[in-house]
Design a protein around this nucleic acid. Structure first.
Ligand SMILES: [Mn+2]
Ligand SMILES: [Mn+2]
Ligand SMILES: [Zn+2]
Ligand SMILES: [Zn+2]
Lengths: 130, 130
DNA sequence: GTCAATTTGCAAATCATTCGCAAATTAATA
DNA sequence: TATTAATTTGCGAATGATTTGCAAATTGAC
């Protein structure tokens, strides 16, 4: 019956849209003060990503392990650098999609669906406070 | 006592060096016909990556979930595109590290430790056999 | 309101990865 | 070669993010 963007999914979407940093399912759960079940949040994030309402990427981090993060859509879209010390994300622009598409088109017979790009390092604040 | 590159770790390393595609811990385990314990393979891959003898990346795939893959070192180093249909990897050259370093240096106060880049899509063979 | 389709909460399952610990291996030394 | 301390290994159990089964609640069309 075409329910689609339910109230709970709207709450999840506005948490993501209201955040300046990528959030995990657990982050959203905490920000919603556990008003929405964690499994529902996982399903909602999947749904929103499938609908292209949000973007997601999985990052491997020493503290959190492999976790998927979600972020609002921006134009042009963003990628992130993750600080290995304080575990925060900083966005940067300059997507490589065009260059990659051209490269692949000329070198490989693939149609590209997505590209994943992120950096890890140490932020300025952590560098100095060491 | 400086044991370091033990026989088991050498076997793991030669599996990785002998493969033209990235391998997971489970792949290495199967290729070694379970002659080496799976936990030892995880520990060995960590060790080899820490020693910069191999490279690794974690990818999220519909069939396998979030899994870490390891690949031999190449110069210039490679990135991969993953087919969402047949779940194979194809390498491509053209790393963006230099451009990314420059961009970050001018825009953000970070020191970069690693960059993760991979693409997903559908390979030529799967496109045609649909 | 009725009703079938969809979504949700809850608990249990999944699955790659990690961890604790005792036994085995290693390499330096006598 | 025997001794020995450090390191590695195997095994099973634990971890933790994510997924799933199912019954109850919600949704939207009629
Ligand atoms: Mn982190
Ligand atoms: Mn795959
Ligand atoms: Zn930091
Ligand atoms: Zn394919």
């Amino acid at each position: 019956m075409i329910c689609k963007l339910t109230k709970k999914r709207q709450r999840i979407l506005s948490i993501i849209n209201g955040s300046s940093v990528p959030l995990s399912a657990g982050d959203v759960h905490a920000l919603l003060k556990k008003a929405v079940n964690l499994a529902t949040i996982y399903r909602g994030l999947h749904y929103l990503e499938l609908q292209h309402r949000i973007e997601g990427f999985t990052i491997l981090c020493t503290r959190e392990g492999a976790v998927r993060y979600y972020f609002k859509k921006e134009n042009p879209h963003l990628h992130f650098i993750h600080c290995e010390v304080c575990h925060t994300f900083s966005p940067f622009r300059g997507c490589l999609r065009e260059k990659l598409m051209n490269k692949i088109a000329s070198e490989l017979d693939y149609s590209i669906h997505s590209h994943v790009l992120y950096l890890t390092g140490v932020c300025g604040s952590c560098k100095r406070s060491n």
